[in-house]
Design a binder for these strands. Structure first.
Lengths: 137, 137
DNA sequence: TGTAATCATACTGTTTTGGTAGGTTTATTC
DNA sequence: GAATAAACCTACCAAAACAGTATGATTACA
């Protein structure tokens, strides 16, 4: 049931960027240093965030990344789903999955469906902006 | 974020036993056949359930397993926690974990704590008895 | 004493996870 | 137009987790 480090790191990157707004683009190196995460590892994470439309990347000198939306418009659930592929607690609830043959007789499906809903509702009611303003110190 | 097959199978075993009550002890072979799961694999799962006090095992001829409590007294959350070790979505929320050095400054901890609560509340409000009565066909 | 069951231990193959390395392309600046 | 700093791309690797199998010892009952 653990969220992967990819998911957690992605949230830290987006929160970091929301906390350090910039006119232009922020190079990944800067974020990696602030967060104490390997820049090379972050590359693969950030790549996914660009593909999912949460970040914009610009190449070349003075390039880097910037948020594609305001922090208020980025739900935590969307970030985690982007990184994990799905938020579903069991694979039969993942989209594009063929229907389970046991479905009609399954004793646990309603319980899983409810859990899925509870998790999704919680995570989509929480945005990156909330993360920033909730933070410590 | 997926629940392991161990957790899912454990729920199926307990639900199966609740649905097929017996005076004495039910041999694992019977449950494995009804559920279409390898008996050998179930052995390791059931062993954990005994250790966690959810099942009682009896050796020898006419032996088997029986529920240690009524289905109403077995919350789904307890079953899953027994199998997964913890229900926490991030390891810093697991019990017996040394406090994270970033804790005071962590932007995401309150969000994770809330998620943990939401999941635990949901899963502990659902019992094996509910699974049985919710079921299909 | 035979038998049917739990219990214990060890092993194995596959997938996922977390991470590294090296090179290519692109945009800016001098 | 060359140097540079950045994103981007591909490949690889080690360790851990997962799902499952195999073998054998122990126990309780008939």
């Amino acid at each position: 049931m653990l969220v992967s480090t990819r998911g957690r790191y992605a949230l830290r990157v987006l929160t970091d960027m929301a906390e350090h707004p910039s006119e232009g683009y922020t190079p990944l190196k800067e974020i990696a240093e602030r967060q104490g995460i390997s820049e090379k590892y972050l590359e693969s994470i950030v790549k996914t965030l660009v593909q999912e439309g949460l970040l914009l990347g610009l190449r070349g000198k003075c390039g880097g990344y910037r948020l594609a939306k305001t922090p208020e418009e980025i739900p935590v659930g969307e970030v985690l789903r982007s990184m994990e592929g799905s938020l579903a607690p069991v694979s039969c609830l993942e989209e594009g999955q063929p229907a389970c043959p046991r479905e009609a007789d399954c004793r646990t499906l309603p319980m899983w469906t409810g859990l899925d809903r509870v998790i999704r509702d919680y995570l989509n009611g929480y945005t990156v902006a909330d993360l920033v303003s909730a933070g410590g110190i």
